[in-house]
Amino acid sequence: MSTAGDSPTGCVFCDIVSETSPAHVVYSDDDVIAFLDISPVARGHTLVIPRRHSAGLDDVDPALGAPLLAAAQRVAKALKGSAFRAHGVNVALNDGRAAMQTVFHTHIHVIPRRHGDKVSFAKGLLTRRSGDLAAIGTELRAEIAAQR
């Protein structure tokens, strides 16, 4: 995952929101944007962020909490769809350096899980390989669009 120091504005996620940095966007609305993690733990690992910058959980505008969670729910539902067939998801928000937050723009991880995937999940935490993000993004966007 990129760090804030890699960004011309100091926040790579703000650059994604402003479309000055590339991302495989799978969902977007007026409040949030969701895109594939460039170092995924599992195929379809998605980050959901508020469009308005906040560094961590304590400074997210409370009015953005519901749209942020609703977008994470949409992504989770799509990951359980026919293209990904996840049996469940892990939802995580790393808040602060001690919690392993590496990009200091609030973001929710939505990570697909399958029954019996403990070994591959643990391996994914260590290796974090991207795979074909363009193809994965196309599949996930289609699953999200099918929800409407």
Rank of each mutant, 00 (worst) to 15 (best):
V32P: 02
A83E: 12
D30Q: 11
A99P: 07
L69H: 00
I136H: 03
D29R: 11
A23L: 11
A70Y: 04
R51T: 10
H87V: 03
H87F: 05
T9I: 13
L47M: 11
A78D: 13
P62R: 01
V119R: 10
F104S: 00
H109M: 07
L126C: 06
E19M: 13
K118I: 14
L125Q: 07
A145L: 14
A72D: 00
P50G: 06
V32E: 00
A71C: 14
A146W: 08
I49V: 15
D6E: 15
V91M: 05
A71V: 04
A99M: 06
M1I: 12
L133P: 02
I144W: 14
A71W: 00
V41Q: 02
R43T: 12
A34C: 03
A63K: 04
S130P: 07
F84P: 09
R97E: 12
V12Q: 13
V32F: 05
L93F: 06
D58A: 11
V103K: 01
T46S: 01
D30N: 10
S130L: 02
V17N: 11
F84Q: 02
R51P: 12
S2A: 12
L126F: 05
I108M: 15
P50I: 05
K123C: 01
A146S: 14
V75H: 08
V26P: 01
V25G: 02
Y27L: 08
A76S: 15
V41C: 03
D61S: 03
S28H: 11
L125W: 08
A86D: 04
D30T: 08
T127C: 04
R148A: 12
A63T: 08
P112R: 01
L133N: 03
Q147M: 15
E19V: 09
A76E: 15
A92D: 08
R128F: 01
T138L: 10
R74D: 03
D61K: 05
F35C: 03
A86C: 03
A71R: 06
C11M: 08
V110L: 09
T106S: 14
K77Q: 14
A4I: 13
A72V: 00
R128Q: 11
F13S: 07
D15M: 13
C14G: 09
A72P: 00
D37K: 04
A66W: 01
G124P: 04
D6P: 08
D31M: 10
F84K: 07
S54H: 10
A92Y: 05
I49E: 03
D59R: 06
H115T: 09
K77A: 15
P8W: 10
G65I: 01
I111P: 02
L126A: 14
M1L: 11
R141S: 09
F84G: 07
H107P: 02
H105R: 12
L79C: 06
V75M: 09
C14R: 05
G124E: 06
S18F: 14
G116I: 02
I38C: 05
R113P: 06
D117S: 07
R113M: 10
H87C: 07
A86H: 04
D58I: 03
T127L: 13
M100D: 13
G65N: 02
L93R: 06
I136R: 02
D95M: 03
I38A: 10
P67S: 10
S39Q: 12
D37S: 09
E143N: 07
V26F: 03
R85S: 09
V41R: 00
